[in-house]
């Protein structure tokens, strides 16, 4: 079956003063229709850049240097970033919600102005219809008395409310895919839960697919069907949600799981991953996780960066020389 979106070997580099920064270096993933997937990784691992590359929203000094993004059977990277075709996809077929609700809305435009413009652009609505639809959308995402508030400015809303508005905006044109880039990071726990609930409910309603980007495995646990773990610009493990949680194969995934509060770890101390993510400008040619890896072997040091390899379990792949399930399965309880 044809994938709705398939990203193949995507490479996005930044030409910085310190040298070439490989923010995304050979990332491949896919999404099927009405599927929810998760992309998880620490801050700075390249999640956002990956998604922005899909949207062709990489600004200088960044550049997509390789790979394909096949959407509905066509490589949309071939489109000009600001050409007609790409613009039709952006916001129309693939929408994106950003991680900072406080700054992602234009402070000098009313909600109506900001919501209506996509509607008018992609769905060719006129002003009145767009306004009606915008009110409708705000109601759907749970803004109280939307008729009254649609002419308010963003600063008159709380962070959670603004993210609801962002969701409404993202879904306004009925996109095939909604990319939610850490939509809840800046919010308190209760609001996070509500928003995730809302988002999944909404994509179901709109029959869209959803890519949840987060650094918190816990966030995607309930909703995502499949999960991609990213580290230093690369996918290091992928598989179904179940597989990943039950049989994590990559030391980094294990570390992530240990740092996430879970029902079965209640009462246990959370263990953050020691050390810092590597500097992406001068990457070693061996495994990028090595400096922080509790499982490293001599082989890891002497061999090049491992490739993703299939491991038991449906679609489960991991980028590691060591077969962790064999070595240790006490780490994850």
């Amino acid at each position: 079956m044809e994938r709705l979106l398939e990203v193949k070997d995507l490479k996005t580099y930044f030409n910085t003063d310190d040298g070439l920064l490989k923010a995304v270096d050979g990332v491949s993933f896919y999404v099927d229709e009405q599927e929810i997937i998760g992309v998880v990784g620490e801050s700075g691992c390249g999640k956002t850049v990956t998604q922005l590359s899909v949207m062709q929203l990489i600004a200088r000094p960044g550049k997509i240097v390789g790979g394909e993004v096949i959407f509905e059977g066509r490589d949309i990277l071939k489109y000009k970033p600001h050409g007609e075709e790409m613009r039709a996809i952006r916001g129309g077929k693939i929408a994106m919600i950003f991680q900072e609700p406080m700054t992602s809305l234009n402070p000098v435009l009313t909600l109506n102005q900001q919501l209506s413009e996509s509607l008018m652009l992609h769905l060719k609505m006129n002003k009145e219809d767009a306004r009606k639809r915008a009110i409708e959308l705000l109601r759907l995402v749970g803004i109280p008395s939307p008729e009254a508030r649609i002419d308010d400015y963003p600063h008159q809303f709380s962070g959670g409310m603004r993210q609801r508005v962002m969701i409404a905006m993202g879904l306004s044109c009925n996109p095939k895919i909604l990319i939610a880039d850490e939509p809840t990071t800046a919010l308190d726990v209760t609001t996070q839960a509500q928003l995730l609930e809302l988002m999944t409910e909404m994509v179901e309603r709109f029959r869209s697919s959803l890519i949840i980007v987060t650094h918190n495995l816990g966030v995607v646990a309930r909703y995502a069907k499949r999960i991609y773990i990213m580290y230093a610009g690369k996918i290091v493990e992928e598989g179904t949600c179940k597989e990943i949680f039950k049989h994590p194969r990559h030391p980094y995934t294990i570390g992530l799981l240990n740092s996430v509060p879970r029902l079965d770890t209640v009462g246990k101390r959370l263990v953050p991953i020691e050390g810092l993510p590597p500097n992406l400008t001068n990457m070693p040619d061996y495994c990028a996780f090595l400096p922080r890896c509790p499982y490293k072997t001599e082989k890891c040091r002497t061999s090049p960066m491992p490739d993703l390899r299939d491991v038991p379990g449906e679609g489960h792949r991991v980028r590691c020389y060591v077969d962790i399930a064999e070595v240790d399965n006490v780490t994850v309880k």
Binding site: L57, R87, R90, G91, S104, E117, S118, L121, H122, M166
Partner: peptide, 8 residues
């Protein structure tokens, strides 16, 4: 960026 992402 949000504005760009709308396809404007």
């Amino acid at each position: 960026r949000t504005a760009w992402s709308k396809g404007l």
